[in-house]
Design a protein around this nucleic acid. Structure first.
Lengths: 348, 348
DNA sequence: TGACAAAATTGGAACGTTCCAATTATCTTG
DNA sequence: CAAGATAATTGGAACGTTCCAATTTTGTCA
């Protein structure tokens, strides 16, 4: 119903030409201070709203200042924090974030990416849904839009990626557990058809071998990568003929669930059973017992991904760059650390 | 670097006019089936990407098919789920979501809303940052953009709102606890300067009065509305001269933290101390003990908010509508329900 | 088959901005 | 103060689409 206020209206009211108004809008040094002040005053007075659509229709080269972010499960706080990290750097670079959730649906992912393309995003950060194929990104990269792939590897895609070092993280965690004297160490949770799962599992197995421990298939207990899945995995582990005494969990959600499951069977996590998570979500530190976990710092990862993307946007050229995010084991209470053990022994 | 493919290129290649191509794009019934097929084939062949910017420059009336969603803390899974709920209905209506996080910063909120305005959103769903004033929304609503305010009330703003019935929820929870025989019931967590806090607190107090219990200031233990805050509140509560035996928590995150804090002091939530949450986030059901909580169904709330917004967008007119979302107490294990009590007595 | 209706197609103007080349105003300086 | 240099401003074209009115094609029926 309201008439749109345009640069022309501003120009008329300020007694200048639309070109001058345009220059003021882009903070050009070409315009006289007095004029700039007057124009800005009128802009405020008339309640002018800049029309980015029209603007980047004209400047087909410099794109739209929108960054697309597509994640596969916003409900998982890992991704929420990732998004927050991205948002931080993207915002301060004057871009705006376009966040969509696919919920692991490939169809939804296709729709969402297509829609973002229509809106002329200047770059995309994607945490792909399970089963995403390199071909799904083909048209996007072909049209020269920089893409940064995070969290899950997409084989064969010619885009930059930022994947955390899942193998090293799992290896470090299991080595630590072995060092604490555990002999039967389980792996809890995760869907077997993702690259993340197989890399963490590979790290787990390699560490067992390196520590001279037996690798047993029955100790690999898959489940949904959620809290409920963790409860389930713990229950199944405890009903095994020979129980494990420790577990590396696919992620922190599974680890929390595992703690719940242990308690349901009257076992205290960190005392009767060692639990190690993966991700280091924000609650890991505050939980009781505080969760020992492989820290991938989701916010930091988001920030790095965003920086990588911005670098590519500014460079103009998009040579794919594969970064392996380093990872570190944060030792807290849930694994019954050496220090804790000594303490408990002293109490006897 | 890549040349953009436009309707004109399509028209030329298909041997029709650009107008016809445009009609095909909008699935108009005016165009002959044969022509439509040919044009569609060429579109696919040339890898054409629709330029929404140009499109809604022309059709200044029918807006841009973007819905803006602004939340104050994406890290809180309540809001992540809210966003997922919104996304569901928004997507299926052919809109695309534009999600931004303010992290409780008013400046960030202003920036984000301004940016969305420039991009020509056709509607906004806002969970306002603390301290948001009605004036902050003034220009937006003045320009005729429908706004739905969720979760937190903004006094004086002439926009539709969808707020859950915090008073009734808190009242029901406390009444339930009183019915289980608790006499000293605490209130854990939350910042005192939000409307949500004061409404839940009011519900808590009214229920105490209705149950003939004493209202004591020392039992209201504020803290950050996070898991860490819950740990903190529980610790403080347990160091009181006369301990409470139950607590209504500001939200589920606080409730989980409270459980952690209780365990740290060797008290078992649901057995030695009753804990009730608020929100019913997805993990509440899976936790051990399963959390008794006031369900506000964040996804459902998101869906309702989105429907309300779409209704307003379609109607064209924006008469503000205030909806109070109903709420129900979901009784699980963390409050040591009557059923559980009987069971435990039978075991003796 | 001629005449009229219905269906399908079309060229040009318009949306709000930026860019370019051109113009006008202002400043310097011998 | 003339004249060249610099600073500031400007009109018009262009971006890719949709809408409108007009035109062409096809179909119908006496």
């Amino acid at each position: 119903m309201k008439e749109r206020v345009t640069v022309i209206d501003i120009a008329r009211a300020a007694g200048v030409s639309k070109s001058t108004v345009s220059l003021v809008l882009q903070a050009s040094p070409l315009v006289n201070e007095t004029t700039r002040a007057k124009v800005n005053a009128v802009i405020r007075e008339l309640g002018y709203v800049y029309n980015r659509g029209a603007a980047n229709l004209r400047q087909s080269n410099a794109k739209s200042k929108i960054i697309g972010v597509v994640v596969n499960d916003l409900t998982n706080s890992f991704f929420a924090e990732l998004a927050v990290g991205i948002d931080m750097v993207v915002q301060s670079a004057g871009y705006v974030q376009f966040l969509a959730n696919t919920g692991e649906s490939l169809d939804r992912q296709r729709e969402v990416i297509a829609s973002m393309r229509e809106h002329g995003i200047s770059g995309l950060i994607l945490s792909p849904a399970r089963g995403t194929d390199a071909a799904d990104l083909k048209p996007l990269v072909a049209s020269g839009v920089p893409v940064v792939n995070v969290v899950r590897q997409i084989v064969g895609a010619k885009v930059s990626s930022l994947i955390s070092d899942n193998h090293a993280g799992a290896h470090a965690a299991v080595t630590h557990l072995a060092g604490l004297g555990h002999r039967r160490i389980a792996f809890f949770g995760g869907f077997p058809d993702t690259a993340v799962f197989s890399e963490r599992l590979r790290g787990y197995r390699d560490a067992l071998v390196d520590a001279g421990l037996e690798v047993s298939e029955e100790l690999v207990i898959g489940s949904a990568p959620s809290r409920a899945g963790g409860v389930d995995a713990a229950e199944r582990a405890l009903s095994l003929p020979v129980r494990p005494t420790a577990a590396l969990c696919f992620n922190d959600a599974v680890a929390f669930g595992a703690c719940d499951g242990l308690r349901a069977k009257r076992l205290e996590p960190g005392v009767d059973f060692a639990v190690v998570g993966f991700d280091d979500v924000i609650e890991a530190k505050a939980a009781v017992p505080a969760l020992t976990t492989v820290s991938v710092d989701p916010q930091g990862m988001g920030r790095r991904a965003a920086q990588l993307l911005l670098k590519q946007i500014n460079a103009g050229k998009a040579d794919a760059e594969a970064i392996i995010g380093s990872v570190r084991l944060v030792i807290r209470q849930s694994c019954g650390s050496a220090a804790d053990k000594r303490e408990r022994l002293a109490l006897i």
